[in-house]
């Protein structure tokens, strides 16, 4: 056990780790933005009385939730080009992550929609609002506040999932860490620093989200 810690080599490459972290965050943010749109549409489809909307939406959610994300990442990047869908590494990964998060967010939003008391819709009807106005002025804002905690934990786990982009050589944090590991042989130091960067980012993200939650919380 004659291993002595020496962080010099890692500090020298620290800017690369930071750049990787930046890319990780970017991937997560773009993916969840698209994923929210998908999730919202699918959530309304899941609540639709028409089986023509509900069944495909349910299938999408079930399939995505039960398939390992790494398989999805590899499938999109390596197999889809055979069908003529050719995306570069980053776009391919963002597309995968967006579709992946869409399924989880659909469940989150669906639960949120169920939690909106039906009386609110009736009160909206009683003052003459149309169904569409009720959806945009009442159901959506109430639902979004309800799901904020779930939304932030989905975002954090999505941020961690960006590490899988390393599998298709997207230079995000995990990929950079692995490269530095191989180049410098400062194995322990590299992974300690990389983990700490992830943990610190998750902690900061969680704190930020809690602030937003508190801002927007419905007072009870």
């Amino acid at each position: 056990m004659g291993y002595t810690l020496n962080f010099d080599a890692v500090w020298r490459s620290f800017d690369r780790l930071l750049a990787g972290l930046g890319l990780s965050l970017m991937l997560a943010i773009v993916a969840i933005a698209i994923g929210c749109v998908i999730g919202l549409v699918v959530a309304f489809a899941l609540r639709s009385p028409s089986g023509l909307l509900r069944r495909p939406a349910g299938l999408y959610v079930t399939v995505i939730r039960n398939t390992p994300i790494l398989v999805l990442v590899l499938f999109t990047y390596f197999a889809l080009p055979q069908l003529g869908v050719r995306l570069d590494k980053i776009n391919s990964f963002i597309a995968t992550l967006a579709i992946y998060s869409g399924a989880y967010l659909a469940e989150v939003f669906r639960a949120g929609l169920i939690a909106v008391p039906p009386g609110l819709r009736e009160a909206g009807l009683a003052i003459g609002l149309t169904e569409m106005q009720i959806r945009t002025s009442i159901t959506l804002p109430v639902m979004l506040r309800n799901v904020l905690p779930a939304l932030s934990s989905t975002f954090i786990s999505l941020f961690k999932d960006t590490s899988l982009a390393a599998a298709i050589a997207v230079p995000e944090l995990t990929f950079e860490a692995r490269k530095i590991n191989v180049e410098t042989f400062r194995v322990v130091e590299t992974w300690i620093v990389a983990s700490c960067l992830y943990v610190a980012t998750c902690t900061v993200l969680a704190a930020l989200m809690r602030r937003i939650e508190r801002r927007l919380a419905i007072l009870r």
Partner: peptide, 24 residues
Amino acid sequence: TDFIRGTPVLVLVLASYYMLSTIG
């Protein structure tokens, strides 16, 4: 728990694979 849950599983896997052999 906070540290493990804040770290991506892939990083845990890579760290476990590379690190443990280094420390013997």
